[in-house]
Simulated scan of single mutants.
Amino acid sequence: MKNSTSKIGQNSTLKIVAYFILFVGLLPATSYSQGYRTINAYMDDFAKNELYVKKSLMDYSVSIVESQLYTRTQYTAERIITKLENVNTILKNNNKGFEGNTLLRDSFIRMNEKTIECLKNGSLILSDYEYQSTLSLAEIGENFNRKEIDQAEYYQELRNYEADKRIFALTYKLPLKSGKGKNILEYNASQNMLFYKMNVMDEKLNLAIAAKDKKGLSDCLNMIQVMYQETLAKTEEYKGEYQDNSLNEANIAYSRFIAAQRDKLSDLFNGYVDEYNKLQSLKNQSSETNEAVAAYNEVVKVYNMKKNIFYSVFKDVQTTKSKLYDTWLTTNSAFLKRNGKIDNIYDNYAVNDKS
C-alpha cells in the first residue's frame, strides 16, 4: 500500500527549492554598469535591488507551496540558475566595486555560485523519498549526513556573505542592522530536514510491509525511534529562534505519529506475516488428506482474518498520516507568511542613521 510520503516528496521539493534562495540578493546588472559618487548611493542601490528580488522570491515561494506544482519548481530552478549565472558574469566584467573595494561584490558572487551549485546537484532539495527508501539503512544514514553537511555549508556561505556585507558597510562608517540567530531561510530548512528524514524512513517502512519483511519492519521502527528522539531534541533547541513555534509543534506532532506506528502496527503485522508463512508452508505440502485440507482451510481462515485486521488499521493510519501531512504543509506556508516579511530597505541598510 502506497504511503502519502510519495506526495510529500514532491511537495517538499516545492518548498525547499524556493526557500533556500529567499534571501539571496540578485543584483540587476544595470545597477553596476555605472560608477557611484557616494557610498550611500552604492548601498541604497544595492539594497533596492536586493529588496525587490527578495520580495519577488518570497511571494513566489508562498504561491508555489500553495499550488504544489512540481514542474513549476523545476522550471523556476532552471530560470534562477540562468539568471544567477548571467548576473555573475556581468558583475565580474562590469562591477568595479566602490572606490576599488570589491569585497561586497566578490562575496555576493561566491554566494551566487554556491546557490547555483546546490540547485544543480540537488543537495538541498529534499524530495527523493522513494529513491532513498530503496537503499540500505546504512546508505540512507550516509546520505542523511551528506545532505546535512551540504546544508550547513550552504548556510555558512550565506553567513559569510552577511559578515562581509557588515564589514563593507563599517569600512565606510555605515551602520548595518542585522538579525540574530537563524534567519527564516535557515530555520525553515532545518525544520524541513527533520521532516525529510522521518518521511524517508516511513517510506522504507512501507516497503518492508509490502514485502512482508518482519526484520525490515523492526529495523525501520527502531531507526524511526532514534529520529523521533532527534526531532524532540532539535525542536527543543529551535524554540528560542522564533516566538512563533507553530512549525516546531507541527514537526513534533508529525514525528510523534510516525514513531507511534510501532504500537499500532508491529504486533498486528507480525501476526499477519506469521500466518502467511504458515500458509505458504502448507501449500508446499503434497498431502491431500481430509485432515490436511481441513488444516489448510483453517490457516487460510486465520490468515485472512489477521490480514484484514492489519490492513484495516494500516489504512486508518495512512488516512490520519495524510491529514497530519496536510496540516504540516499548511502550517509551513502560514509560518512563512507570518515570519518571512520583507524588511523595509532602511531596516537592512541604515545609511541615514545619525547616531
Rank of each mutant, 00 (worst) to 15 (best):
S123K: 06
T30A: 15
E66A: 12
K315V: 01
A189Q: 13
T13L: 02
L265N: 04
V87N: 09
A210N: 06
N160C: 06
Q318N: 03
K307H: 11
K197F: 01
T13V: 05
T115Y: 07
D164Q: 13
S12I: 11
F310Y: 07
K306G: 02
F23Y: 15
I81Y: 05
I209P: 00
N297R: 14
A295S: 08
Y238N: 09
I125Y: 01
Y296D: 03
Y70R: 09
P28I: 10
K337N: 10
I8Y: 01
Y155G: 07
L57M: 14
K337M: 12
I90N: 15
I16Q: 11
S246Q: 10
Q191V: 09
Q68R: 13
E186G: 05
T330V: 12
R159I: 07
N94C: 03
A259F: 07
E288G: 03
G100H: 01
V226I: 10
F195K: 04
K323A: 03
A189M: 14
P175F: 14
N112G: 02
F335L: 13
N248C: 07
L174E: 14
S136W: 00
V302H: 11
Y19H: 15
K96P: 00
G181R: 07
D347I: 04
L324H: 03
I309A: 09
K283P: 00
K307D: 12
Q225R: 02
M198E: 11
Q261T: 08
N112I: 00
A250L: 02
A259P: 06
I125M: 01
Q191F: 07
F46K: 12
L103I: 10
D106V: 01
A292E: 07
N86C: 01
N352A: 12
K15F: 15
I80D: 10
L194H: 10
W328Y: 11
D316L: 03
E230L: 08
G25D: 13
S246R: 08
T82V: 02
A295T: 08
V53Y: 15
D263N: 13
L336D: 14
K307T: 08
